[in-house]
Simulated scan of single mutants.
Amino acid sequence: MSETIRLPQFMRDAELRAASFDEPSNTIEVIWTAGATVRRRSWSDGPFDEELVVGDKTVRLDRLNLGAPFLNSHNDYDLRSVLGSVMPGTAVLKGGKGYASIQLTRREDAAGIVQDIRDGVIRNISVGYKIHAIEKTERKNQVPLFRIMDWEPLEISAVAMGFDPVAQVRGGKDTELHECRVVRGDPDLNAVRRIRMMQQQRQAGIGR
């Protein structure tokens, strides 16, 4: 049984390999996916785990290998945000990871950002991708698992901070969510009294 739904562009943290910068060619290597499972949240369905399946039959590399853009913070509305592009033919899958070489721009207006990438000051990157097919599995006492069986990387971006797994919409204006552990105070006042009594007894030398 299957159904069709509409999804926005999604994003995932990726790895910028600053040590791979090559001065003569002005290029750098990135790992644009490692296929990890992350926790996401849908306003309609609640939390779920998303697993990117990395394989020759699940990832569409055509757009990357045609020279997809390397952007500043997923901004695809302004040419000045283009910091480079994927070198054609360099996007490959090896050992469950996706690799690519990026040709960086030499434009003066982007020189500061490119220099920070070269120096390893800017370390975080993110990949934007489109999902074409999902395998959804309901799990007892767990959130559902969405295995992404057919997906297409659209662009790679340098970002100030890696995106939280719940950030789904490109340039979304909705409030981003994150997990927060709530520690509740002990309402049992007798427990507090017992602790104070034990402290007093220790101070008086009782019970040593």
Rank of each mutant, 00 (worst) to 15 (best):
S2L: 09
I5D: 12
P8M: 10
F10A: 13
M11S: 08
L16R: 02
R17K: 15
R17E: 11
A18I: 02
S20M: 09
D22V: 05
D22E: 14
E23W: 05
S25T: 15
S25E: 15
T27A: 01
T27D: 02
T27V: 04
E29Y: 02
I31Y: 00
I31S: 00
W32D: 03
T33N: 11
T33I: 07
R39K: 15
D45N: 09
D45C: 06
D45I: 06
P47A: 14
D49R: 09
E50W: 06
E51D: 12
E51M: 06
E51A: 10
L52K: 03
L52D: 01
V53P: 10
V53S: 06
V54L: 01
V54T: 07
G55T: 04
D56Y: 07
K57F: 13
V59R: 02
L61I: 01
L64D: 00
N65L: 00
L66K: 14
L66S: 13
G67L: 01
P69C: 10
F70T: 10
L71K: 11
N72E: 09
S73V: 05
H74Y: 07
H74C: 04
N75T: 15
D76A: 10
D78L: 15
D78K: 14
R80F: 03
R80E: 09
V82W: 02
L83T: 08
L83Q: 11
G84A: 02
V86A: 00
T90S: 08
G98L: 01
Y99V: 01
Y99H: 12
A100M: 15
A100L: 10
S101V: 15
I102Y: 00
T105P: 00
R107W: 03
I117R: 00
V121H: 07
R123S: 15
N124M: 04
I125F: 06
S126L: 02
Y129I: 01
I131W: 08
I131N: 07
A133R: 12
A133M: 09
K136S: 13
T137G: 02
L145N: 02
F146K: 13
D150R: 03
W151T: 12
L154V: 03
E155N: 12
I156C: 01
A160M: 08
D164G: 13
P165F: 13
V166W: 14
R170P: 07
G171K: 02
K173H: 14
E176W: 03
R181E: 14
V182M: 14
D186F: 09
P187N: 06
A191W: 08
V192M: 10
M197N: 13
M198A: 09
Q203A: 11
A204M: 11
G205I: 02
G205Y: 08
R208A: 14
R208C: 05
R208G: 08
